[in-house]
C-alpha cells in the first residue's frame, strides 16, 4: 500500500496538522518509504494469535466513584494560552 499526495493531505487533515504544498511533496516519499518497510509484517503468520493488550499481566484497578480532587481550576488553567473568566478561551466556534 502506498500513499499519494491526496492521501497525505487526508492524513494531515485527520491529524489536524496544516501542510504546505512543499511539505506534502516531501512527506509523500518519506511516508511511502516507511510504510513500504513496515509492509514486511504482512508475511508473518498470525493465525490464531491474539493481539497484545497488556505487555505485563496486570489487573486494571477500579477506584471508588467519588470526587477525590477538585478546587483546582486555577491550576488547570495556569498554562492555558488563553483563559478568560475561569474558562479556556478558543476562537469562535458558532457563527
Amino acid at each position: 500500500m502506498s500513499v499519494d499526495t491526496a492521501t497525505v493531505r487526508h492524513i494531515a487533515k485527520l491529524a489536524r496538522i496544516a501542510v504546505s504544498d512543499e511539505e506534502v511533496a516531501a512527506l509523500e516519499p518519506e511516508l511511502n518509504n516507511i510504510l513500504g518497510w513496515i509492509e514486511q509484517l504482512q508475511e508473518v503468520d498470525v493465525t490464531g494469535v491474539e493481539p497484545m493488550t497488556a505487555v505485563i499481566p496486570n489487573q486494571l484497578r477500579l477506584r471508588d466513584d467519588v470526587v477525590n480532587d477538585g478546587n483546582k481550576r486555577d491550576d488547570v488553567l495556569a498554562n492555558a494560552p488563553n483563559a478568560e473568566h475561569g474558562f479556556f478561551a478558543v476562537p469562535k466556534v458558532i457563527e
Partner: peptide, 13 residues
Amino acid sequence: DAYFNQAQKVRTL
C-alpha cells in the same frame, strides 16, 4: 486491521 492489529499480533509472538 492490516497495520495496527497485525502489529499487535506480531507483538504477542
